[in-house]
Write a protein that binds this DNA or RNA. Sequence first.
DNA 1: TATATTTGCAGTCAAATAGCTGCATATATG
DNA 2: CATATATGCAGCTATTTGACTGCAAATATA
Lengths: 106, 106
Amino acid sequence: MEVRRDVFQAIADPTRRAILTMLTLQALTPGAIAANFNSSRQTISKHIQILAECELLRHHYSGREIYYQLNPVKMKEIADFIEPFKALWDTRLNQLDEILKQLKNK
Amino acid sequence: MEVRRDVFQAIADPTRRAILTMLTLQALTPGAIAANFNSSRQTISKHIQILAECELLRHHYSGREIYYQLNPVKMKEIADFIEPFKALWDTRLNQLDEILKQLKNK
DNA sequence: TATATTTGCAGTCAAATAGCTGCATATATG
DNA sequence: CATATATGCAGCTATTTGACTGCAAATATA
């Protein structure tokens, strides 16, 4: 479980996507995050580690607690990959708009 | 290799991302796609199947050749996931802008 | 100080992944 | 019709994944 570790691999897992979404609202401790899942605390902790390793999460200590928070900028790597495709589907939608307009004019 | 099969899992593999990018320009046959990689034709073909299964690719026949083309709209699922995070990193960038403006004014 | 809580790390295991080869099928081409 | 080309499918294998449990360390709390 030690080789590929990038943003794309990180968001491939639905549990990890849920964790990311959960952290859009506020920073949380591993315990608090794990409380929302059926999996064991250690399993969730491992997911958190993976997210942290590829810098999707940052953390800061507060006594024995560790608060994990989003690093949303890192998500930009995914947005950058999507961007060129976005242009393509926009084009298709625009073409559809054109067709609809022409139909209306008839 | 038969269970999870969604867009996020599909783009987790770098080879599959390369295939998708390759197909932004034009529809291609499996043979033509495979020619761009070091992996075997069958291996690339399997990646194509995976992309097709989750509807990221469509295909049409031309004699014995099969042309695969992008279905960019399907990529929107990823964009939709990214969207809320985009707001967050935009906020941070905007805040940075504010700070820079204030520094300039001093 | 003794005990409880929060967390990370190491180890195990079944299932999934991604690569390979071999073979069958369908369509061009000579 | 015989051969070459394009493709998909089945089966094998090493590696990776994601789940689990157990344990150690650090910090609160009684």
